[in-house]
C-alpha cells in the first residue's frame, strides 16, 4: 500500500507535502516571467517542454542556484511549479495526524514531530480568472 506516499520538500519556512502521484517532475528553478494581475503568490510563468506553467511561491523561498521547482499535476492535467529549497524525501503520511482544518488547500499534519502542510492539488493552485477574459 503506497496510497499515502508524499514528496516532502522545504519551501522557505514551511515543509510541504504533495502526494507522489501528483508530482510530475522536479527540475532546477528558472526565473519566471511575471504576469500582471495574477495572485500575489504567483511569481510568474515558465515553460517546461513547451508547456506554460505558473510558478507558485508558498513558503517565501529566496531563489538561489540550488532552488528547485516541483512540478505538480492537478485537475485536467494542469501543471503548476512550486518553488522548493530542497526535497526532504518521500514520507508515508498515512498515520499523520491532522492538527488543524485545511486553509486555501493546505492541510497541516504532524509527522515525526514536525508540521507538514499537505497540498491539496485540486484546490491549492486553481485560481479563477480575476476578470472575465473576452
Amino acid at each position: 500500500m503506497n496510497v499515502h506516499r508524499h514528496v516532502v520538500f522545504r519551501a522557505g519556512a514551511h515543509s510541504l507535502a504533495v502526494a507522489i502521484e501528483h508530482v510530475a517532475r522536479i527540475v532546477p528553478y528558472t526565473t519566471p516571467t511575471p504576469v500582471p494581475g495574477t495572485p500575489e503568490n504567483v511569481r510568474g510563468i515558465v515553460q517546461h517542454r513547451g508547456k506554460m506553467l505558473p510558478v507558485v511561491d508558498i513558503g517565501g523561498a529566496q531563489p538561489n542556484p540550488f532552488t528547485l521547482l516541483v512540478i505538480v499535476e492537478g485537475a485536467h492535467g494542469t501543471l503548476t511549479g512550486v518553488i522548493a529549497d530542497e526535497v526532504s524525501g518521500i514520507v508515508d503520511l498515512g498515520a499523520a495526524t491532522p492538527i488543524a482544518s485545511a486553509q486555501s488547500g493546505l492541510a497541516p499534519v504532524l509527522s515525526d514531530d514536525r508540521v507538514v502542510l499537505v497540498v491539496d492539488v485540486e484546490r491549492a493552485f486553481v485560481c479563477t480568472r480575476l476578470e472575465e477574459r473576452p
Binding site: 516571467t33 505558473p54 485560481c127
Partner: peptide
C-alpha cells in the same frame, strides 16, 4: 503563440505568451 495556463488568473491585457529563442517566456 501559446495561451496562458488555463488555471492562471491574469490581467486581461495579457493575451498570450510566447517562448523566446533563449527559452525565456514573453507576454
Amino acid at each position: 503563440v501559446k495561451g496562458l495556463p488555463p488555471h492562471v488568473a491574469a490581467d486581461p491585457r495579457v493575451a498570450a505568451t510566447a517562448v523566446m529563442p533563449d527559452g525565456t517566456v514573453i507576454l
